[in-house]
Design a protein around this nucleic acid. Sequence first.
RNA 1: GUGGUUGUAGCUCAGUUGGUUAGAGCGCUUGAUUGUGGUUCAAGAGGUCGCCGGUUCGAACCCGGUCUUCCACCCCA
Length: 457
Amino acid sequence: MSKKPSIPKGTRDFNPEEVSKRNYIFNVIKETFSLYGFQPIETPSFENSETLMGKYGEEGDRLIFKILNSGDYLSKVDEKVYSEKDSNRITPQISEKALRYDLTVPFARYVVQHQNEITFPFKRYQMQPVWRADRPQKGRFREFYQCDADVVGSTSLWQEVEFVQLYDAVFSKLGLKGVAIKINNRKILSGIAETIGAEDKLIDFTVALDKLDKIGEEGVKKEMREKGISEAALQKLQPLFSLKGCNDEKLTSLNGLLGGSQLGMAGVEELRFITRNIKTLGLQTASLEIDVTLARGLNYYTGAIFEVSAPSEVNMGSIGGGGRYDDLTGIFGLPDMSGVGISFGLDRVYLVLEELNLFPETVSENSKALFINFGEKEAVYAMKAITNLRSVGIKAELYPDATKMGKQMGYADKRNIAFTILAGEKEMEAQSYTLKNMKSGEQSQMDFPELEAFLKS
RNA sequence: GUGGUUGUAGCUCAGUUGGUUAGAGCGCUUGAUUGUGGUUCAAGAGGUCGCCGGUUCGAACCCGGUCUUCCACCCCA
């Protein structure tokens, strides 16, 4: 057993069926991105460490896969640093490159680097794997795909409106009904922190608030107290926990709560614009819900924050997220470039569709028909037909060996090929083919035009 | 990073207080069936019990370490 080869923790192999299903999701997302005017780019799977390090917080830095330098990398290490055995200080000396951790930061780097060639607003999509040195668990892998669409160079809230539509379009096409797109605004979170006098504890405050649906009101309050948020502040926060009703009602309540905060009010206005227009335009199957407890990616979001959760019955966490960041390219020296984007987690969407049995049967990239091999002369006859079928786009193949028929049938059966075609001496004489439906067992003899027409339908 | 969990045939799993030769179902191969698969029947192949070490007359079973699986927390897609 131990001698068997294996793959690293948190990685996966994909069999033909799985790849077909993944491609199906991939294509739906790609087509939708394209339909909304986004254009594809790709970036390298690894970047210079300084491009990535420090962009995702302390936790993120730990999760970045570092690539060891080539050659005698230890010889260049500073003696003193080496003797101290401090990993954090040695790492930059032995590793100058790191695997891509997400698609947003490389995109920011791309925009800054290519700013003179880019026409703004720039709408790009990108669907590539990313790597994180996380401990794997349900729906969490060390190598997984993200599908991102972002716009940079426009502060228009119509972008946010379109992203909500885009989420709705993709999940509707995938047959994932009733998805809730949750939306919040970083400005509201800052505004609340301001009103309760906890600006300096914004991160602690939002991280705790984010857990509301998991640990409940009391749990959140307990965590906030532990982080040093005063009892008076918690008192002021009370209306937040009982925020109810439709989006409009929530916004009205928030207005009251945020009375003193200009920033908070601005956030409310932004949300009002988005929800109002979505209401006017309508959504196919998804719904848009304001959720003030939503607090993701605070490291760079400055305006709207999106999150799409998997349906509650599958227990998967978020399958997509995004938001607006006013200053993403600032860290690379290009200030005042506002951007907004969303991301789909391909692997999690896959797990959700699989669990809910939502993959259409037609995603298979399997052959439509297998020709039985009766020997050399018959194989030539079959190959002529196969060549013609392929030229009109019908997937067909010949069983490579002239073995016993039972074996060839069994092969078609196991590969789930819908039809087998018998072309032996009998058929050759009549210039015909015997087509067998592997599901029903029915057989019928026909000439080539009939065969082609049948397989094409 | 913290806590737990798992590992026995290709797959899913049994395996007694530590005791001869480690089992089942499914799958696989062959045959019944020389132009018919999925059903049935018969026969057969297949395992260094994750790995390393320890305790013991004796270990799949007990102990330690290690890797792996899955799960929760943290964080995230």
